[in-house]
Lab assay of single mutants.
Amino acid sequence: MDVFMKGLSKAKEGVVAAAEKTKQGVAEAAGKTKEGVLYVGSKTKEGVVHGVATVAEKTKEQVTNVGGAVVTGVTAVAQKTVEGAGSIAAATGFVKKDQLGKNEEGAPQEGILEDMPVDPDNEAYEMPSEEGYQDYEPEA
C-alpha cells in the first residue's frame, strides 16, 4: 500500500510541476504579447503594419512553449490582441483601416495563427491545408 501511495504522490508532483510550467509559459506569452502591443503603439504610420505582424510573430513563438489545451486559448487571445492593436492603430490615425491585415508588401496577414497546427491532446499534428499553395516548377 505504501508503494501505491508513494507512486500516487510522485504522479501528483509531476502534474503540479507540469501545471506550473504551463502557467509560466502562458505568463511569458502574455508578456511578449504586451511587449508587441507597446511596440505597435510606438510606431509611426509606416511601421504600424509591420508592428502588428511582430506582435503576432512574438506571440506565436511563445505559444510553442505552452502545451496542451492552453495553446488553443493563448492563440485565440493573441489573435484578438493583434486585431485590437490594429483597431487602436486605425482609431489613433497611425494607419488607414484599409491597410490593416496586410503586410508591407500588401499581402493579407489573416491566418497567421489560424494555420498553425495545434492539437490540445498532444496526440497528432496535421499540416495546414494546401489550398493556398501553388506547385513550383523550376525553369529549365
Rank of each mutant, 00 (worst) to 15 (best):
residue 117 P to E: 14
residue 137 E to Q: 09
residue 33 T to M: 15
residue 63 V to I: 09
residue 44 T to E: 00
residue 128 P to E: 12
residue 10 K to Q: 10
residue 140 A to R: 12
residue 11 A to K: 00
residue 17 A to L: 07
residue 56 A to E: 01
residue 67 G to M: 02
residue 76 A to I: 06
residue 96 K to F: 14
residue 80 K to V: 03
residue 7 G to P: 03
residue 122 N to H: 08
residue 95 V to D: 07
residue 5 M to V: 12
residue 136 Y to I: 01
residue 132 G to F: 08
residue 32 K to L: 15
residue 129 S to W: 12
residue 139 E to R: 05
residue 89 A to S: 08
residue 1 M to T: 00
residue 37 V to P: 00
residue 91 A to L: 14
residue 29 A to W: 09
residue 16 V to P: 00
residue 109 Q to I: 10
residue 16 V to N: 08
residue 70 V to E: 06
residue 58 K to W: 02
residue 137 E to A: 14
residue 78 A to T: 05
residue 12 K to W: 09
residue 12 K to I: 09
residue 131 E to K: 06
residue 80 K to H: 08
residue 62 Q to H: 06
residue 121 D to H: 12
residue 56 A to G: 03
residue 22 T to W: 05
residue 59 T to W: 15
residue 121 D to W: 04
residue 125 Y to P: 15
residue 129 S to G: 10
residue 132 G to Y: 14
residue 76 A to E: 10
residue 90 A to F: 05
residue 73 G to M: 01
residue 137 E to M: 13
residue 79 Q to R: 01
residue 17 A to V: 02
residue 84 G to E: 07
residue 128 P to A: 10
residue 103 N to H: 15
residue 73 G to V: 10
residue 31 G to Q: 05
residue 67 G to K: 15
residue 15 V to A: 01
residue 97 K to R: 09
residue 124 A to P: 12
residue 135 D to Y: 14
residue 52 V to N: 00
residue 93 G to L: 04
residue 41 G to R: 13
residue 129 S to C: 05
residue 38 L to Y: 08
residue 48 V to P: 11
residue 77 V to Y: 08
residue 106 G to W: 12
residue 9 S to P: 00
residue 46 E to P: 03
residue 118 V to F: 05
residue 87 S to R: 10
residue 132 G to A: 09
residue 4 F to Y: 13
residue 49 V to C: 08
residue 38 L to W: 12
residue 40 V to D: 00
residue 73 G to N: 10
residue 41 G to T: 14
residue 102 K to P: 10
residue 8 L to Q: 00
residue 44 T to L: 06
residue 89 A to G: 08
residue 43 K to G: 01
residue 48 V to S: 02
residue 116 M to L: 01
residue 34 K to R: 13
residue 75 T to M: 15
residue 117 P to M: 09
residue 87 S to D: 08
residue 120 P to N: 05
residue 49 V to N: 07
residue 122 N to S: 13
residue 53 A to W: 03
residue 46 E to M: 10
residue 75 T to E: 09
residue 2 D to Q: 12
residue 34 K to M: 15
residue 105 E to G: 08
residue 4 F to K: 00
residue 41 G to Y: 10
residue 47 G to H: 14
residue 34 K to H: 06
residue 40 V to N: 01
residue 128 P to L: 09
residue 52 V to D: 00
residue 104 E to A: 09
residue 91 A to C: 06
residue 96 K to S: 10
residue 39 Y to V: 06
residue 58 K to S: 08
residue 72 T to Q: 02
residue 105 E to C: 13
residue 27 A to P: 00
residue 84 G to H: 15
residue 21 K to W: 05
residue 51 G to V: 14
residue 37 V to K: 01
residue 52 V to G: 01
residue 43 K to P: 00
residue 4 F to P: 00
residue 67 G to W: 12
residue 61 E to I: 11
residue 21 K to H: 08
residue 33 T to F: 02
residue 115 D to I: 04
residue 50 H to E: 04
residue 120 P to A: 07
residue 3 V to L: 08
residue 43 K to Y: 14
residue 73 G to W: 15
residue 111 G to E: 07
residue 97 K to M: 01
residue 89 A to N: 03
residue 91 A to W: 13
residue 59 T to A: 14
residue 125 Y to F: 13
residue 38 L to M: 11
residue 11 A to M: 15
residue 113 L to P: 03
residue 135 D to V: 04
residue 27 A to V: 12
residue 32 K to M: 03
residue 17 A to K: 09
residue 138 P to R: 08
residue 119 D to P: 09
residue 82 V to H: 08
residue 100 L to K: 02
residue 139 E to I: 12
residue 90 A to V: 15
residue 38 L to R: 08
residue 43 K to I: 12
residue 6 K to S: 06
residue 107 A to S: 03
residue 5 M to T: 02
residue 14 G to D: 07
residue 48 V to Q: 00
